[in-house]
């Protein structure tokens, strides 16, 4: 790794916004806007993992897709090695696609049931002209399969012949076939059984070290995120409310939402479960189509004051490398 790569982040996200328009309810009514991602900024350094956590509907998946330009952002910039991907046309974007890949939650839904896994993994190799001949591609596919823990003997089988964990390995092989720099992992282990989850997490860590990969790890399971991330960003209703080194967040969460989220984590130590004072949040996440005024968390916040209902707090660095968006911190 060169020193310049260490100094500047591989990925810089600035003011990322993605709004969706709902169908008009009536002719005289302006269409409702869902502000799924509403101004998100962060950096990810090469070889590191940023964990993006939050509850369903907080915009974490949309953030991942907008970074990859799978959905074009409404506003903002995504600098990948200095180039703003948002400014590129689809055609100019193509060479960059090789460097940025995604692994989905449901590997079954993301694989074509009528295509053998050998063909599925070889496809990106042919599209990006990494392999010139079919024989060459086949060899590379077998090597990839071995690398992710699949028996290369199964190269001509179809996705339905594999278990969930094996399918996720296929998804990983396919994403890594083009030797990317940056991978978005969107809930990669949530649909897997506990024992298989651990296998896949170990594999992802090994691959990261071996291939110098940079991860954006999107998940809702805070135990998994703590395990795999260097830094963690907590999202709530389209905004990052806290961003810090993983251990800082878990040892001393500053935002009331992060505190509640962490107090709800079901750790497997019964002694911890007993002494833990759970902060039970009232109500549920508001809708991104009808955002509360001021701080978006104030309707559920146990500490909300008048100011929180009116004024939206900005993300500030309150301790070294620890950013929080809360008036009370």
């Amino acid at each position: 790794m060169s020193t310049s790569a260490l100094r500047s982040p591989l990925l810089r996200v600035r003011g990322l916004v993605k709004h969706f328009h709902l169908p008009r309810r009536s002719l005289f009514h302006a269409p409702d806007v869902v502000r799924a991602v509403d101004g998100v900024s962060f950096d990810i350094w090469r070889g590191k993992t940023l964990g993006l956590v939050g509850e369903s509907g907080c915009g974490k998946t949309t953030t991942g897709r907008a970074i990859l330009q799978l959905m074009r952002p409404t506003a903002g910039a995504v600098y990948f090695e200095g180039t703003d991907l948002c400014q590129l046309s689809d055609k100019d974007l193509r060479p960059f696609r090789k460097g940025i890949q995604i692994i989905f939650q449901d590997p079954y839904a993301s694989l074509d049931p009528r295509v053998t896994i050998g063909t599925a993994i070889a496809e990106p190799l042919m599209i990006h002209k990494i392999c010139q001949t079919k024989e060459e591609a086949r060899e590379r596919v077998q090597e990839l399969m071995r690398r992710v823990g699949l028996n290369p003997y199964f190269i001509n089988r179809y996705p339905h012949e594999f278990s969930g964990g094996q399918r996720q390995r296929i998804g990983i092989a396919r994403a890594l076939a083009v030797d990317p720099d940056f991978v978005v992992l969107d809930e990669p282990v949530s649909s897997l059984d506990v024992s298989i989850q651990a296998q896949i997490l170990n594999l992802l860590q090994d691959l990261q070290a071996e291939m110098d990969l940079t991860y954006l790890f999107i998940a809702h399971d805070l135990r998994v995120v703590r395990h795999i991330s260097d830094r963690i960003a907590v999202m709530y209703l389209g905004l990052i409310v806290e961003l810090a080194r993983g251990l800082d967040i878990y040892d001393a969460p500053l935002h009331p939402y992060t505190q509640a989220l962490l107090s709800a984590v079901p750790w497997t130590d019964p002694r911890l479960a007993r002494q833990h004072q759970r902060i039970i949040l009232e109500g549920e996440v508001s809708s991104a189509a009808n955002l509360p005024s001021g701080c978006r968390f104030h309707p559920r916040c146990p500490m909300a004051e008048d100011r929180c209902r009116v004024e939206a707090p900005a993300l500030r660095e309150v301790r070294t490398k620890h950013w929080v968006a809360c008036h009370l911190v």
Partner: peptide, 25 residues
């Protein structure tokens, strides 16, 4: 033991390998 080792705990060091169960059900 394998089931418990597969879930990251609050005491584990981030990044350390999980003691997973090999193979499939």
């Amino acid at each position: 033991q394998g089931l418990l080792g597969s879930v990251p705990s609050l005491h584990s060091e981030p990044g350390e390998r999980l003691s997973s169960i090999s193979g499939l059900p």
